[in-house]
Write a protein that binds this DNA or RNA. Structure first.
Length: 441
RNA sequence: GACCCUAUCGUCCAGUGGUUAGGACACCGCCCUUUCACGGCGGUGACACGGGUUCGAAUCCCGUUAGGGUCGCCA
């Protein structure tokens, strides 16, 4: 009875990966990892019309991005392949013949229909509990088609055959399949096989409670990949949608989720996707992850923005400055561009408000003189010098701080001034001060 | 329409017969602060409704309502 757990994620390649599907994959993966079982990826590509290699790639990319690795499936191999339904024709034919020989299917105008047993079918769902469906009424529950006149197969049939053939022990899928399950149970019975256990997880809805469809914001995993999210943050958020560790924890290591995950405490009600909270969690992750990881995640966005960045400590020093301020990785380029080029623009509003303010250039020259004498170019010394300069005028430190910030970065917002100056280096800072004075004097 | 699932702050998640109904996001104040953020403190805000059961119900039962799902020669 205690056979090893085998679960699967069986998407059809539609060209995008829905967050709901991603969460289904995540829960399957967590269940497998928790029980030391296998996670199988099966591509349900029976619909030849919209089946393309690109569409399959989108699924791989999304799953890999979320860190969900599969033990069997395309690219991973396994003893239960092929893992594309389009390549399993012989298997389906064999099971179909079995059904036909036993009289479970009949020809209906060229299509083949499966004859339901007209009785009550009880399902003991791992999440929903016991649910009974009555097949007694033929009118409302007609026999189902399993094969079209052209010989192609219907979802219910191939899905069941594959789960059987692949030795799937637990089917964890969306609640939209709950009502389909008794049909699948009948198919298993007709095939003389023991069905897997089923667990139906609630669906993900939009913030307004409507069904989340392809076009809705945040519906596709790709939107997070492109939108500058840390994959661990999105994955964490998805874990919390319908499942909870039962304490007040929000940010959790995936290893801990893996340990504590269980189907028994998955919520029964559908959850609305709260992008705000997902964004908050993303910011939490970005702010607190090791700078090496941050750099790894930020690099593609830097490259895309055409910013030639150094690698290693030099880049890390810059990123560490802005790490806790940036909400999305897509924003990193604009926050650090001036560290890697002298060709930065002065923000028009910042220039008007700060650089063209009466006396601003005098302050900048005074600060340049003070800084020119600094020998140990590091933040605390720079802060001390600036405050001394302010006292000697006297004026508020802000009178120096704001012009200095805009002078070296072109922006009115940025990291801590002194740390920013330290990373920029004495030579560049003084040169930018001089250039700014020349231009705005 | 029939059948199935569900029902705690706007949202997510705790709470499984006795709690001032808790936490998080968002929102609003205050503090911190060179900008922007972070952070800290505080606040607004919920048991869908109606019947039962019980000394006592957010918690158990029934009904109503609402939301979601399924009823394809889609997956």
């Amino acid at each position: 009875m205690n056979q090893p757990v085998r679960v699967r994620f069986a998407p059809s390649p539609t060209g995008y990966l829905h967050v709901g599907g991603a969460r289904t994959a995540l829960f399957n993966w967590l269940y497998a990892r928790h029980h030391g079982g296998k996670f199988v990826l099966r591509i349900e590509d029976t619909d030849q019309a919209r089946n393309t290699v690109e569409a399959v790639q989108v699924i791989y990319d999304g799953l890999r991005w979320l860190g969900l690795d599969w033990d069997e499936g395309p690219d991973a191999g396994g003893e239960n392949g092929p893992y594309f339904q389009s390549q399993r024709e012989a298997i389906y034919l064999r099971y179909f013949e079995q059904l036909r020989a036993a009289g479970h299917v009949y020809d209906d105008g060229g299509a083949w229909r499966f004859r339901f047993r007209r009785e009550v079918v009880e399902l003991d769902d791992l999440i929903c509990g016991k649910v009974a469906f009555d097949f007694a009424n033929v009118e409302i529950m007609p026999d189902m088609t399993v094969r079209r006149p052209d010989g192609s197969w219907i979802f219910h049939f191939v899905n069941v055959v594959d789960d059987l053939e692949m030795g799937i022990t637990h089917v964890i899928r969306g609640e939209d399949h709950l009502s389909n399950t008794p049909k699948h149970l009948q198919l298993f019975a007709a095939l003389g096989a023991t069905p897997p256990r089923y667990g139906h997880i609630p669906l993900i809805l939009n913030k307004d409670g409507s069904k989340m469809s392809k076009r809705d914001q945040g519906a596709s995993v790709a939107s997070y990949m492109e939108g500058g999210y840390a994959p661990e943050a999105v994955r964490n958020y998805l874990c919390l949608l319908g499942w909870s560790p039962k304490d007040d924890r929000e940010k959790m290591e995936i290893s801990e989720v893996m340990e504590r995950f269980d189907l028994a405490n998955i919520n029964r009600k559908s959850a609305q996707f709260d992008l705000d909270k997902c964004n908050w969690l993303n910011a939490q992750y970005l702010a607190h992850m090791p700078v090496e990881r941050y750099a790894e995640l930020a690099r593609p966005f830097l490259e895309k923005a055409g910013i030639a960045t150094p690698s290693g400590p030099e880049l890390h020093a810059v990123l560490a400055l802005v790490q806790e301020k940036v909400k999305f990785l897509t924003d990193v380029p604009e926050w650090v561009r001036y560290f890697f080029t002298d060709e930065y623009e002065y923000d028009a509003e910042a220039a008007d408000k700060t650089l063209r303010k009466p006396g601003a250039m005098d302050r900048l020259e005074q600060l340049a003189t003070a800084y020119g004498a600094v020998e140990t170019w590091e933040a605390t010394a720079l802060e001390t010098r600036l405050k001394e300069a302010a006292t000697s005028i006297p004026c508020k430190p802000a009178e120096f701080i704001h012009p200095a910030r805009v002078a070296v970065s072109g922006r009115s917002v940025g990291p801590s001034l002194y740390h920013m100056l330290e990373v920029l280096g004495k030579e560049r800072v003084l040169a930018r001060f001089a250039r700014t004075v020349e231009r705005f004097r």
